[in-house]
Design a protein around this nucleic acid. Structure first.
Length: 589
RNA sequence: GCGCCCGUAGCUCAGUGGAUAGAGCGCCAGGUUGCGGACCUGGAGGUCGUGGGUUCGAGUCCCGCCGGGCGCGCCA
């Protein structure tokens, strides 16, 4: 539990239900002596007849679809109907009777509990809970939205990892945003995250790239399987003569030496593009260092020691079928002096990553790599790691369409749209929102012209507009000599208590208070579309508030200050939601 | 052929087994003598691909079928 994290109101209500359920046990007289019913068929009673510790699945709490049902609803009584052999309504009434509300304890976050058919428990939040939350936002705006998962982990997330043989193209966009968004959400939930980029810096494609640069430089034809993009010509022009000279003196293939130089140029360009997107990486790891530092050899040795390799036709094969793979996989080739395969390097990489102390390693892959999942997990298991600590998140394919036709992309031909070009057209914020608002597993048709046309109508601007509008009101208030009270202002609780009796104010405070839940859900599901939906909801609620409640009114200074406190909290919350998505929150636009 | 993913409003997409299936865009009709009209209010628009099953309850879980995408190298 980090001290600056927030416990969501949902968690507080869950604890209140839990406690009420415990106190209601006597009224609910178990169907069979010694049996403690479990909420969701979990944790059977101990065989000896002694009641087990009351373990059960977490009590489910949801935001009701219909706001007239209150702020939170639980289906607990319906889940308990079978084990208790009682009607859900009866159970619900028994639990409701034991819920502590503000009627008996002024500090309770719950104002009232209602029972509704077929057995729902509906809860209403107390104004005091809303005021306390608003105060907390103002007291420490920087940490508002941070929560604390039950078991924080050190997590490595590897994403993009495109080979440095050409600039990133639009096909790399989804992986970049998906990985970055995941890292932001996991961090906000209390995990420690490192972001990693893996690239091949010595393979045949790199040599190929070097060969293409050399050919252009020397006025020859580019080899048939070479690279033709404009950036190749730029590098041929910029290639320092020393590189060629040194290669000649060392009697090295110039394509190889130039390839090393060229791929580093490209890699640096990729890094710059990613930083421009707001995607920062902590670690850049090259395939060659895995071999050089002995990780690949160590991994192969460990598989061998585990008895999971055999030789076949001169090749060394990993028996991945033992761990659920479709077929066994070659790790050392029969040719090229038993050179390791790409997969062997990946196995070495697993060993290297876990040696750094991560509890979980995550890969963001395009779904075209899904066939790779089983073999990598198999390798992890054979190496003695928990296969569940190796996680793959697959992003569905994005079809880029222009004029009704899918755009084919090929780095070698140079016929592709770069990520930089796309973002120049539609803007980073709009692009981030586009990907953040869709589940990673959902296939997307990205119509370039449509996206450009719609970028000006992108909901992201609706949210940013709400933020800028609040900023404007706060500026105006300062000019009028009224300012928003700070979180530690002794008048704050009185001002909020008075102002929260109004419907627009209470609605806004309710929306603000949801942020920690949204972060919890995003981290648990490892998806961010809940955040975009929430940000839109909050903006809508603010715009309604703006319509119904005038903030600056010199004739009503107390009411003005109470409302200023609320919109300041709303502004922080909007910025927090946008920040989770890596999107800017402008003071004006 | 085998495996994985997907199928929800005209379009792009949400929907942790719960109450009347939602949002944005588009379309139609309205709204401001006041803090930013990049705003607000209302409306039309759905056999949740399809047929069974499990459940007190299924868009959600299971099976079959139809349609679409991807994968099934000692390539990376």
């Amino acid at each position: 539990m980090t001290p600056d994290a927030t416990t969501s109101l949902r968690s507080q209500v869950r604890e209140a239900i839990e406690a009420a359920w415990q106190r209601a046990q006597a009224d609910l007289a178990p169907a069979t002596a010694g049996e403690v019913p479990a909420a969701a068929g979990e944790s059977p009673a101990t065989p000896g007849g002694v009641p087990a510790e009351p373990q059960h699945a977490p009590i489910e709490i949801e935001r009701p679809a219909d706001p007239s049902f209150g702020d939170f609803a639980s289906n607990l009584a319906m889940k308990l109907a079978k084990p208790y052999r009682k009607a859900p309504m009866e159970i619900a009434r028994a639990i409701a009777a034991h819920v502590v509300t503000t009627a008996t304890d002024a500090a309770s976050p719950i104002a009232s509990v209602e029972v509704a058919p077929p057995g729902f428990l509906n809860f209403r939040l107390a104004d005091g809970a809303l005021a306390a939350t608003t105060t907390r936002v103002l007291l420490d705006p920087a940490t508002w939205g941070r929560v604390s998962v039950a078991h924080p982990e050190r997590i490595n997330v590897e994403f993009v990892s495109a080979n440095p043989t050409g600039p990133l193209h639009i096909g790399n966009a989804r992986g970049a945003f998906t990985g970055d968004l995941l890292c932001r959400v996991l961090t906000a939930a209390g995990h420690t995250v490192e972001r990693e980029y893996y690239f091949n810096d010595f393979g045949s494609q790199v040599k190929n790239l070097g060969g293409s640069v050399v050919a252009i430089r020397e006025g020859c034809e580019i080899p048939e399987d070479g690279y033709h993009g404009e950036y190749v010509y730029d590098m041929a022009r910029d290639l320092p003569a020393e590189i060629l000279e040194q290669a000649r003196q060392a009697d090295e293939d110039p394509a190889l030496a130039v390839g090393r130089w060229a791929s580093e140029q490209v890699r640096a360009g990729i890094q710059a593009s990613l930083e421009h997107l707001g995607c920062h990486f902590d670690v850049w790891r090259s395939e060659s260092t895995l071999h050089k530092d002995g990780w690949v050899k160590q991994a192969v040795d460990r598989l061998r020691a585990a008895g999971d390799v055999y030789e076949e036709d001169g090749a060394v094969v990993f028996r991945s079928t033992k761990y659920g793979d479709d077929k066994d996989r070659v790790i050392l080739r029969s040719t090229d002096d038993n050179a390791p395969t790409y997969f062997a390097a990946d196995i070495g990489y697993i060993v290297e990553k876990f040696s750094r102390g991560y509890e979980r390693i995550v890969f963001i892959w395009g779904e075209d790599h899904h066939g790779y999942v089983a073999r990598v997990k198999a390798a992890a298991q054979s190496l003695g790691f928990d296969r569940d600590h190796v996680q793959m998140i697959l992003t569905a394919w994005v079809r880029f369409i222009r004029d009704g036709k899918e755009i084919a992309m090929s780095k070698r031909s140079g016929e592709f749209i770069t990520l930089d070009e796309l973002l120049g057209e539609i803007g980073v914020d709009a692009a981030r929102w586009f990907f953040a608002s869709r589940a990673a597993s959902s296939g997307i048709d990205f119509d370039i012209e449509l996206a450009k046309k719609q970028s000006s109508e992108n909901p992201v601007y609706y949210v940013q507009y709400a933020h800028a509008r609040i900023a404007s009101i706060l500026r105006k208030a300062t000019e009028a000599g009224i300012s928003a009270p700070a979180g530690d202002d002794p008048r704050l609780s009185g001002l909020l208590a008075s102002v929260l009796t109004g419907a627009p104010e209470a609605q806004l405070a309710r929306q603000i208070a949801r942020l920690p839940e949204i972060v919890e859900d995003a981290a648990a599901s490892e998806e961010t579309h809940g955040i975009t939906a929430y940000a839109t909801d909050l903006a809508t609620t603010f715009h309604a508030f703006y319509r119904d409640a005038r903030v600056i009114d010199e004739a009503e200074p107390d009411r003005s200050m109470g409302r200023l406190a609320l919109i300041a909290a709303a502004k922080t919350t909007l910025a927090g939601a946008l920040g989770l998505l890596g999107i800017s929150a402008p003071e004006s636009m």
